[in-house]
Simulated assay, not measured.
Amino acid sequence: MRVTTNTAVAERRVRSAPAPATGDRKGKRGRPTQWAALGFLTPLAAYLAIFYAYPLVRNIDLSVHDYNARAFVLGNAKFVGFDNYAAIFSSPAFGPAVRNTVVFTFGSIAAQYLIGLVLAVFFRNNFRLSGVLRALFLVPWLLPLIVSGSTWSWMLNSDNGIVNSVLRAFGIGEINWLTSPDWALTSVLVANIWLGIPFNLVILYSGLQNIPGDLYEAAALDGANAWQQFRRVTVPMLRPVSAITLLLGLVYTLKVVDVIWIMTTGGPGNVSTTLAVWSYREAFGTGQPDFSPAAAIGNLLIVIALVFGFLYLHLQRRQERS
């Protein structure tokens, strides 16, 4: 009887006890988590706003106003809408600049990728002094661009450059690498390829290290030779890394100014002038800065980079779905 009574009293106490405030506890626990997430996001949001959003908005503002040096200081630039864009599209320099940009950009990234891939495959099999050689290949990447451009400018100098000295030693006539309309773009292209090879080597070599060796062993057991292993195993497995390497190379090469400016200043004439060099020349290279057309050309480069970026994302999502 006592057991039954005690049990009934305990049941009534349990029933009459207030339900735990689960919602309040979850809310109290969730708020610190939300504040912590906001705390981690705030530095990133501030960085993007200061170094990306504001410069982009400012560049758009420059391109739709008539900013010269005086208006830039006084802040009374006249609103002209899309007149600056119409001016650059109708300029005689636009066609050569686009053509040079296409040749310089795609020539650079194609050569850099192919040479970097060959070197990455070469260094994949560790051998004596491989680490030292890889470190030496990184030297162009570590040098300041002004040093690299000046070095190439000296090497290709028509009078006392080392390249023409070697050509003369073999009985070949000297070439005006930096002042000839036939060779100026080729000269800056070769210099830029040399600068970009280490980046491609590092990224592609890292990608090769993530390919399981079992795949190569299975391919060898199936009778695949070295070329077939490269074509059937290396290339497909390296495709994601190759895509991001080419995209980064494209974005970087589109905005190359320093090397070309140091070596040829975009000349002779407009032979080696790309869109990036044209933008820099309009803003700083004439002695009479005209910031609005320079900003319009810069926005055109941004649009081109965005198009290829969205194309990369589209292809990546399509590959993930398949």
Results as ranks from 00 to 15, higher is better:
residue 1 M to K: 13
residue 2 R to L: 05
residue 6 N to G: 14
residue 9 V to W: 09
residue 14 V to P: 04
residue 18 P to I: 00
residue 21 A to D: 14
residue 25 R to E: 09
residue 25 R to K: 06
residue 27 G to N: 12
residue 27 G to R: 14
residue 31 R to V: 12
residue 31 R to A: 11
residue 34 Q to G: 15
residue 36 A to S: 13
residue 38 L to S: 13
residue 40 F to A: 14
residue 41 L to R: 02
residue 42 T to G: 03
residue 43 P to Q: 07
residue 44 L to T: 13
residue 45 A to G: 11
residue 48 L to R: 09
residue 50 I to H: 05
residue 51 F to N: 11
residue 52 Y to R: 05
residue 55 P to S: 00
residue 56 L to A: 10
residue 56 L to H: 01
residue 58 R to A: 00
residue 63 S to D: 02
residue 64 V to A: 02
residue 64 V to W: 04
residue 65 H to I: 02
residue 68 N to Y: 01
residue 72 F to G: 03
residue 76 N to Y: 07
residue 78 K to L: 06
residue 80 V to H: 03
residue 83 D to M: 06
residue 84 N to I: 12
residue 91 S to C: 04
residue 96 P to F: 09
residue 98 V to Q: 12
residue 101 T to A: 06
residue 102 V to L: 04
residue 104 F to R: 08
residue 106 F to C: 11
residue 107 G to Q: 03
residue 107 G to P: 09
residue 107 G to W: 07
residue 110 A to H: 07
residue 110 A to D: 05
residue 118 V to L: 15
residue 119 L to R: 03
residue 121 V to N: 12
residue 125 N to Y: 10
residue 125 N to T: 14
residue 128 R to D: 02
residue 131 G to A: 01
residue 132 V to C: 06
residue 142 L to F: 11
residue 143 L to T: 09
residue 144 P to R: 08
residue 147 V to M: 14
residue 148 S to M: 09
residue 148 S to N: 09
residue 151 T to A: 14
residue 153 S to R: 11
residue 155 M to F: 15
residue 155 M to L: 14
residue 155 M to V: 08
residue 155 M to W: 13
residue 155 M to N: 07
residue 157 N to M: 04
residue 158 S to D: 15
residue 161 G to S: 06
residue 162 I to K: 09
residue 163 V to I: 10
residue 169 A to E: 03
residue 170 F to I: 13
residue 171 G to F: 07
residue 171 G to I: 08
residue 173 G to C: 03
residue 178 L to S: 08
residue 179 T to R: 05
residue 180 S to Q: 13
residue 182 D to K: 06
residue 183 W to C: 04
residue 184 A to I: 10
residue 184 A to D: 11
residue 185 L to W: 10
residue 188 V to Y: 01
residue 190 V to Y: 08
residue 191 A to Y: 05
residue 192 N to A: 01
residue 192 N to V: 02
residue 193 I to G: 10
residue 196 G to I: 12
residue 206 S to P: 04
residue 210 N to K: 13
residue 211 I to N: 01
residue 211 I to V: 13
residue 216 Y to K: 02
residue 216 Y to Q: 02
residue 217 E to R: 14
residue 218 A to C: 07
residue 218 A to G: 06
residue 223 G to L: 04
residue 226 A to M: 01
residue 233 V to L: 02
residue 234 T to M: 01
residue 236 P to Q: 04
residue 237 M to R: 09
residue 239 R to W: 14
residue 241 V to N: 03
residue 243 A to C: 07
residue 245 T to V: 06
residue 246 L to T: 01
residue 246 L to Q: 04
residue 246 L to R: 02
residue 250 L to F: 15
residue 250 L to W: 11
residue 254 L to H: 11
residue 255 K to D: 05
residue 257 V to W: 00
residue 259 V to F: 03
residue 260 I to Y: 00
residue 263 M to Q: 08
residue 266 G to S: 01
residue 268 P to K: 06
residue 268 P to C: 07
residue 269 G to W: 05
residue 270 N to G: 08
residue 271 V to Y: 10
residue 273 T to Y: 02
residue 274 T to H: 14
residue 286 T to N: 00
residue 287 G to R: 14
residue 288 Q to V: 13
residue 294 A to T: 08
residue 298 G to I: 06
residue 299 N to R: 04
residue 299 N to E: 10
residue 300 L to E: 10
residue 303 V to F: 01
residue 304 I to T: 00
residue 307 V to S: 02
residue 310 F to T: 08
residue 312 Y to I: 10
residue 312 Y to L: 11
residue 312 Y to N: 13
residue 313 L to P: 07
residue 317 R to L: 05
residue 318 R to P: 00
residue 320 E to C: 02
residue 321 R to T: 09
